[in-house]
Amino acid sequence: MSVAVLIEHREGHVSRPSLEALTLARTLGEPVAVWLGDAPTADAVAQLGEYGATEVRVAAVGADARLPAKAAAAVAAATEDATVVVVISTFANKEIVTRLAVLTGAGVVVDAAGAELVEGKVETTQTVFAATWNVRTRIDAERAIVGVRPNTTQASPAASPVEPNVVDIAVELPETRETVVSVEPIPQADGVALDEAPVVVSGGRGTGGDYSLIQDFAELLGGAVGASRDATDEGWISHEHMVGQTGTTVTPALYVACGISGAVHHRGGMQASGTIVAINMDPDAPIFEISDFGVVGSLFDVIPQAIERIAAHRAG
């Protein structure tokens, strides 16, 4: 089974979800990596080989490949022989794979938590309805595209690393009706990206706009800072931090909701997290319906005490 993985990279670095996707792809067949943009560094190529990529296919496309139709054409050119294409399930990639499926006739599942081969067909698992249901889907078409969510596969290097061949893919990008007028980069937040973070500490209305404790706690736990829609609407913290159905969907091993009531839109974006901790003044807050450990109280009391105890524990 020939499996191609679309690699996400920023400033030359391979994203952690891409390594997870390569790990998953190894269970389906022999993966090749597809790289859009400026050629990868030797380090990046070595890392892709470490995770099992036998080949790195580079399509040196520019900023106009931000348009889904153009990006899809580049991916199509690089994956002509692939029976399975694996991508990270981001908003941008969902559009690219939709276009790719229109070009190739592939069947698509996005937001998958896993994939395996069953009698020669790819079957995926997803959680839906704010992670209250499990769904298994079979891709019947001859070609399969799977969009996987970050943090659903534990990234692990291949038993023996390979030295991938780097292959340049010539792509003639199609004319499109759309034009990219401008691209204003959003600086990468310090530390881990929200959707990739193994721990997310989120603050909501209960912070009153003061995120210093949330940041401290996130830093201590090696996590990223999230927020509820209320908080981003108030302008307390930027939109990139919003966890929810229409913001970022997160599935960390640990999710800590501080001063977040747990409206259904928020829960839809975090309910599949491993362990859920909630701190809220309101004992009836819906977040407590899904928390593994809930503290009814003020985050301004609870977090500093927890930080102190954990720090003391670590100091031994």
Binding site: R10, R66, L67, T90, F91, A92, R177, E178, T179, V180, V181, S182, V183, E184, P185, I186, Q188, A193, D195, E240, T248
Partner: peptide, 10 residues
């Protein structure tokens, strides 16, 4: 998008 604010016209 997470990495950039794009303006696109058509």
């Amino acid at each position: 998008l997470p990495d950039a604010r794009e303006t696109v016209s058509a």
